[in-house]
Amino acid sequence: MNSHMQEKRGRRLGITYSAPMGLWLTFFFLVPLCIIILYSFLKKGLYGGVEWEFTLTAYRQMLNPNFMRVFLRTLWVAALSTVITITLALPCGYAMARSRHQVMWLALVIIPFWTNSLIRIYAWIAILSSEGFVNEALKALGVIGESLPLIYNQGAVITVLIYMYIPFAILPLFTTIDKFDFQLLEAARDLGASKPESIFKVLIPNIRSGIITAVIFTFIPIFGAYTVPLLVGGKDSYMIGNIIVDQVTKTRNWPLASAFSLVITVVSTIGVIWMMTSTASERARLKAPAQVVDANGGIS
C-alpha cells in the first residue's frame, strides 16, 4: 500500500469516526440553536409560541434597564464564583496530582454527583438556614448569640455555586498538573527562584490550558445558573437563567427567552473560542507536542 492510498484511507476513516459526533452536534446543538435564533426574531404569540412575523422587539425589550441589571449581576456572580472556584481548585488539583492515591481522590471528587443536584441544594439550605448546622454549631460554641443571615442572599448563591462546580474545575486542573514535569520546579529552585516564583513563573504558565478549561467549565454553567439562585437566593438573586424560565412559563414571551438564551450561547462561544485560540497559541509557543486538554474532564 503506498502512502497516497494510506492517506486517502485515513481521511475516509476520519470521516467515519467523526460522523457520530457530527450528527449528534447537528441534531442536538446546531438545529436547536437555529430554532432559538429564528424565534428570537419573531413576534411573540399571545398565548406562548411565536407568530411568523419578523421583528426586533425581543432585542429591544432586552435593553430594558431591569434586564440589564440582572445581566450585570449574573456576570458579576459568575465571575466572582469562577475566580474563587479556580483559586480553591488549583491546590486541590496539585495535591491530587502529587498524591499516591489518585484514584481515591478522583472518586471522592466525583461521588457527590451520585446525589441529585436538587437534593444537594436542599442540603445546603439545611446547612445554612438560621436553625441550620452552621448557625447551631456557632451558637453552641458561643461564637454568636443570634443566628447569622447565611441563606437567601447573594453570599449563599455564590457559596453553593462554588460547591456545585468545583469538581468541574478540579478535574481538568488535575489532568494537566499530572502531566507537568515536577523536575522543572526543582530546576527553577536550583536556578535561584523562590518557592512562589517557581510556582507562578514555571508551574502556572505550564498548566495554562488546564486553567482555561477549568475557567470555561465553571463560568459557562454558572452564567446560565437557574436552580441555585432560585432556591438559596433572596430577593436580589435573580439571574439570566431565571428570566429565561419566567419568559417561557409565566409571561409567554418565547422570543425574549430565545434572545436571552442566545446571549448565554454567545458568551459561552466567546469563552470556547478564547480557550481554543489560547491553547493553539500556547502550542505554537512551546513548539512541543500538543498539550491536549482532556475532554473527559468536563462533561456538564
Binding site: L106, I110, F113, W114, T115, N116, S117, L171, N296
Partner: peptide
C-alpha cells in the same frame, strides 16, 4: 497504564453520576 486506568475510572464514575443526575 495507571493514567489510562484513572481516566477509565473517572469516565465511568461521571457516566454513572450523569445517569443518577438525570434519573427522573
Amino acid at each position: 497504564f495507571t493514567r489510562g486506568w484513572i481516566v477509565a475510572v473517572a469516565a465511568t464514575l461521571l457516566v454513572v453520576s450523569l445517569f443518577f443526575a438525570t434519573g427522573c
